[in-house]
Structure formats: C-alpha cells, structure tokens
C-alpha cells in the first residue's frame, strides 16, 4: 500500500510564514527553521530537550498565550507562534 503524501500546513513564527507537513508539532517547525524556542535566564538560546512535555524548554507563546509547549502542540493553519517570550 502506498502512503499518501502528507499535506502541509502554514503557520507564522515571529511573523514569518513557515510551511510544514500536517501533523507536525510546533517544536518540529522551530527546529526545521533553526530557531530557538526561548532565551534562558543567562541569555542562552534553547530548543527542545525531552520532546515529551517534561523539560519545559520548548515553551513559546502561541496565539497570544504564553508558556505553551511546542513539543505537544500540533501546527494548526495560521497559528501565530512567538518565541523568546
């Protein structure tokens, strides 16, 4: 059986459009586009560590709501993602 080509979904990261495969998490979109999720207390760039909702490193602002976990949030059409919050 041949697997159907996954469709894509467009989201906005810090105002820039990004297109990823449907079903991708926001953490995937950020990693693909080589962007940090947050800036740490000592001003280091941070990305996902555990990818399962435990380390909280991937928290970003999604549609205006702060501290959402990029690794547990699926990209939805026109989602607005803000990093470094």
């Amino acid at each position: 059986m041949h697997e159907p080509q996954p469709e894509t979904v467009q989201i906005h990261i810090n105002g820039k459009s990004v297109r990823v495969a449907t079903g991708s998490t926001v953490a995937v979109a950020l990693t693909l586009t080589e962007q940090a999720c947050r800036i740490s207390v000592r001003h280091e760039e941070r990305g996902p560590l555990c990818a399962m909702g435990i380390c909280m490193e991937c928290r970003v602002t999604i549609d205006g709501v702060p501290s959402r976990l990029a690794c547990q949030t699926l990209c939805q059409p026109n989602m607005d993602v803000r990093t470094h919050g």
């Binding site: 990823v20 495969a21 079903g23 991708s24 998490t25 953490a27 995937v28 990693t31 693909l32 940090a36 740490s40 280091e44 760039e45 941070r46 990305g47 996902p48 560590l49 555990c50 990818a51 399962m52 380390c55 690794c71």
Partner: peptide, 26 residues
C-alpha cells in the same frame, strides 16, 4: 539527562526525544 559542557546547546536533545521529533514530522 546528565549535564556536560554544551548540553544546553540547541540540537542536543534526548535520544528518545529526537525519535519523538522525527515521529512528529522532523
């Protein structure tokens, strides 16, 4: 996870974590 110099760099992640990311579309 055990801390070593550089473990906080982006793209250093858990083994299962990278697998999860790939399963999630990476």
């Amino acid at each position: 996870f055990l801390p070593f110099p550089g473990w906080t760099l982006r793209n250093v992640l858990g083994a299962g974590a990278l697998q999860s990311m790939v399963k999630s579309g990476l």
